[in-house]
């Protein structure tokens, strides 16, 4: 684990620095870095502190927690296809966020946005675990996820289409694909407390997930409280996915690809994989956010488009492999 982190953490830092230096305002790093840290006159400190910094912070936070949540879900369900985006958790969180915005609740009370998204995510995770059962059968899990995504997506579109606001309908793309464009520090503060709670909840599940690889009875005999473990995974995942989706839309596949790529580096153990996946998720989302700005600087290309282009082939490969196992 330490070797993987020793590689990933510098990578995350380097990507964060690159992300800070990219933008339509053409300024070099020697100019922009002092403006970021020390402030000063003119528009540059504002650009660095209010536009670029929240973008980098959100990429770090959302990418990291998506990687963490993906690893936790895969560990708990003992299924490599589990992922919040794929299983409709993100879509349900987006529905919660859209309801908060369209009902005017988020204007009256700022925390209503992440809270409502969190509620959507909790409901989704509970439905998934209820449907898939304690040992998640791949087919059941995926079908439950497909159904959940479809319902949440359809309801989101219904709400946005019925809105009196002419822009609402075009925002369907944002909620389905996610973007970090033009977010502010306000969004960072809005998401941070929920993500912190989620990370704390998921931080303690490593030992339980490791034990669970031996089966439920063995884990219980090792003193693992399975009910508590389930509660932590459900609430922790819902907290981080809800908060992230509320401010940046549903970004898929990060939680699928990252644990899959890094599993070998930790010897397949789900506990250590949690932290390695968090670092890997942050790196992946930072890289994707850099790519959307480099590939199409003058149009708001959605983040989820890139993560899906990378992630969907992985998903196909996993499906292919699981088919081979059953045959």
């Amino acid at each position: 684990m330490t070797r993987a982190l020793a590689f990933l953490l510098p990578l995350v830092l380097a990507l964060a620095a690159v992300s800070l230096s990219i933008g339509p305002a053409d300024v070099s790093l020697p100019e922009s870095l002092p403006a970021l840290i020390f402030g000063g006159d003119g528009p540059l400190p504002m650009v660095m502190r209010e536009i670029r910094l929240p973008r980098v912070l959100l990429a770090l936070m959302i990418g990291g927690t998506l990687g963490l949540a993906g690893a936790a879900m895969q560990g708990y369900l003992r299924n490599p296809l589990a992922e919040p985006g794929l299983l409709g958790v993100s879509a349900s969180a987006a529905l919660g966020a859209v309801l908060a915005i369209q009902s005017g609740l988020s204007v009256a009370f700022a925390l209503a946005l992440p809270l409502s998204a969190l509620a959507g995510a909790v409901i989704a995770v509970l439905i998934l675990i209820m449907l898939a059962g304690p040992r998640a059968e791949t087919l059941t899990l995926i079908l439950a996820g497909v159904a959940l995504s479809a319902v949440a997506g359809a309801l989101t579109q219904l709400v946005l289409n019925l809105s009196p606001n002419p822009f609402a309908a075009s925002e369907i793309v944002f909620w389905m694909m996610g973007s970090l464009a033009d977010r502010s520090m306000l969004h960072v503060w809005l998401a941070l407390p929920f993500m912190a709670v989620g990370v704390l909840l998921l931080a303690g599940v490593g030992r339980g997930l490791d034990a669970l690889t031996l089966g439920e009875d063995a884990a219980a005999s090792m003193g693992i409280d399975l009910g508590l473990l389930r509660l932590r995974v459900v609430l922790g995942t819902a907290c981080v996915v809800g908060a992230g989706t509320a401010v940046a839309g549903a970004i898929g596949f990060v939680g699928l690809v990252v644990p899959h790529l890094l599993r070998g580096a930790v010897g397949g153990r789900p506990g250590p994989l949690l932290w390695v996946s968090a670092a890997g998720g942050a790196a992946m989302l930072l890289a994707a956010d850099i790519a959307v700005r480099v590939v199409a600087p003058d149009r708001d290309l959605k983040l989820g488009v890139l993560t899906a282009l990378v992630g969907a082939p992985f998903f196909l490969r996993l499906v292919w492999r699981s088919r081979g196992e059953r045959a």
């Binding site: 915005i101 809105s163 822009f167 925002e171 944002f174 033009d182």
Partner: peptide, 12 residues
Amino acid sequence: GASRSEEILMHP
């Protein structure tokens, strides 16, 4: 009616 698109006009 609220929208995310118009939120940018209230950006810091």
